[in-house]
């Protein structure tokens, strides 16, 4: 039995006043410092002794990190310090980015979602992160402040491996930007976990779809998977099949099979690889069917 770890190890809490100060400090302390948002990943890893940071640099409250705003010409900007609950209850998220709202709402329990952030979920770069699939499929990019100024990191190319991303020492993500979705976009997040409160997904499945006159099927549907590969996985074959072929139960079954074939899950404490693969197929079929029905106006 693993012991509970009531005490956090020693570290120094740093509260910089500006982004420049934060980036400078983080760059100067390389491996020994990391940015802090909700701390819900950080404190667990510090307590377990997996991370040994000497400095936590609180970036909540720095320029551009605190607000969530929707502008019909720009899209959605979610400040780094905006919590899962703030995202899930924001009306423009419910209306225009439902896959993200559903995913944010399925992270842990209510009180943890008052601390956990979407940007923290992304920066943590866990293949299990619930909100990551929606952010990738909705063409999200991060606004990053580094020692050499600001830049944007598209999420499509952001993830490099478990816990590894395109971020460098000195980088502070200030916000996440999601452009205006295609007209008529619908979305769904399905999560399979052992229990709801405190568990990472066994698999997590995001589907986004919209009408598209340029495809043979008249629709474009995209699917991303969590917890089945070293990084969040977008299954391009699903989009291909359901663009090129008329959407029927058969083509959806074929796409679900493609999702299953694309994933490379591992056996771990939460589930076996075989079970994960089988569930990817089942849940893909379920979610794609539901999205198709929504697009056809058969359900709402």
């Amino acid at each position: 039995m693993q012991e509970a770890h009531p005490n956090l190890p020693e570290f120094q809490y740093i509260k910089p006043k500006t982004l420049a100060e934060a980036s400078e400090f983080l760059a100067a302390h390389g491996d020994e410092a990391r940015p802090l948002l909700g701390g819900t990943d950080i404190f667990v890893r510090l307590r377990d002794g997996i991370w040994k940071d000497r400095y936590l640099v609180d970036v909540k409250g720095l320029d551009g990190t605190s607000n969530i705003a929707f502008d019909p010409s720009v899209g959605l900007v979610i400040g780094a310090a905006v919590t899962m609950n703030q995202v899930a209850t924001f009306s423009a998220v419910k209306e225009h980015y439902p896959a993200l709202g559903e995913a944010a709402n399925q992270v842990a329990g209510y009180q943890l979602r008052n601390r956990a952030t979407v940007v923290g979920n992304i920066c943590n770069a866990s293949p299990a992160g619930d909100t990551i699939g929606a952010c990738i499929l909705l063409k999200g990019s991060l606004n990053v402040h580094g020692t050499e100024g600001t830049r944007q990191e598209p999420l499509e190319t952001f993830f490099k491996g478990p816990g590894k991303s395109a971020l460098k020492a000195g980088d502070v993500v200030t916000s996440l930007h999601l452009p205006i979705p295609q007209k008529g976009t619908v979305g769904k997040y399905l999560k399979l976990g052992r229990n709801k409160a405190s568990d990472l997904s066994i698999i997590g499945l995001t589907v986004v779809g919209f009408p598209d006159a340029d495809t043979s099927s008249g629709y474009r549907m995209k699917l991303a998977l969590a917890s089945v590969a070293p990084i969040p996985l977008v299954v391009d074959e699903v989009e291909q099949i359901l663009s090129d072929e008329v959407i029927t139960e058969e083509s959806i079954a074929k796409a679900a099979q493609a999702a299953m074939d694309a994933c490379t899950p591992i056996d771990d404490v939460r589930a076996s690889a075989r079970y994960r693969k089988a569930m990817v197929k089942n849940l893909s079929q379920k979610a794609l069917t539901e999205i198709w029905e929504k697009l056809e106006g058969k359900s709402k």
């Binding site: 770890h5 009531p6 819900t40 667990v44 307590r47 842990a108 943890l112 409160a197 405190s198």
Partner: peptide, 8 residues
Amino acid sequence: GCSAGECG
């Protein structure tokens, strides 16, 4: 209870 964000 747990010091890990799990038990509430």
